[in-house]
Amino acid sequence: MHEAPIVQIAGLKFDLALILTVIVSGIIVFALAKLATRNLSVENPGKLQNFMEWVVEFVQGLISSTMDYKKGAPFLSLGLTLIMFIFVSNMLGLPLVVPFKYTDPAAANFFGLPLTTVLDGLNSGKEYVEVGWWKSPTADAASAMGLALIVFVLVHFLGIVKNPKHYFGHYFKPFFFFFPINLIEQFSKLLTHGMRLFGNIFAGEVLISVLLKMSTLWFGVGAVASVLGLIVWQGFSIFVGTIQAFVFTILAMVYISQSLETDEDH
């Protein structure tokens, strides 16, 4: 696996590849949305506007399948941003891998800032360290957890503000001693929400880099196998990336609907 290009600023470690790809996917999402909504028309929508409206209706469908749409309407923008950002992020790591081989500790810097992972690797006796400058932002545990944390915080905030009686009550249901289990459930939701996304995308990218490495083996046979494998796996990764964006969004909506539901609904 490639190392991450990490620099240290004021004691904090920053993953440059992640920063790069997060910004890129944010720009792609915004550019897409902006392009689609550039010449808005009520009676004669363009192709991109139609596509964007289809996405909006899709997310509206997700929301209304998990809760009363009137309650869920404020989360339409959130759902849209989630699904678009995660989808684009998942796709981002698929088409290209930009590995960079560092052998000289002196060259291992980014505008004067030393790449700590490279230096650590070289110092521990490795001949070279390969750094991946390009990946899916969601193929990083911390960033996937960050997205899950946004939903987690929103869900608990909504629960406490909108629905405090039910929110605090449900920790002790069906019996008082279920409290620890309910508490664990909440954190396991957070963990599975983020880790499911991370795991799927990360595994996809690992397999892509493994297939790429295979291309140098067995005098050309490996190359053929690698290309065939990549064709199949890239296709499957597109599918997985789409499904994971969908799953993440619908789970976010499910959690939100759980925090909004009242006892009277049952």
Partner: peptide, 22 residues
Amino acid sequence: TNLVIVIVAFLILYWLLNRYAF
């Protein structure tokens, strides 16, 4: 830091999209 960066980036993106596109 990745976690924080993603959250910040996501919130900015959300605000921008909400304001200018959605």
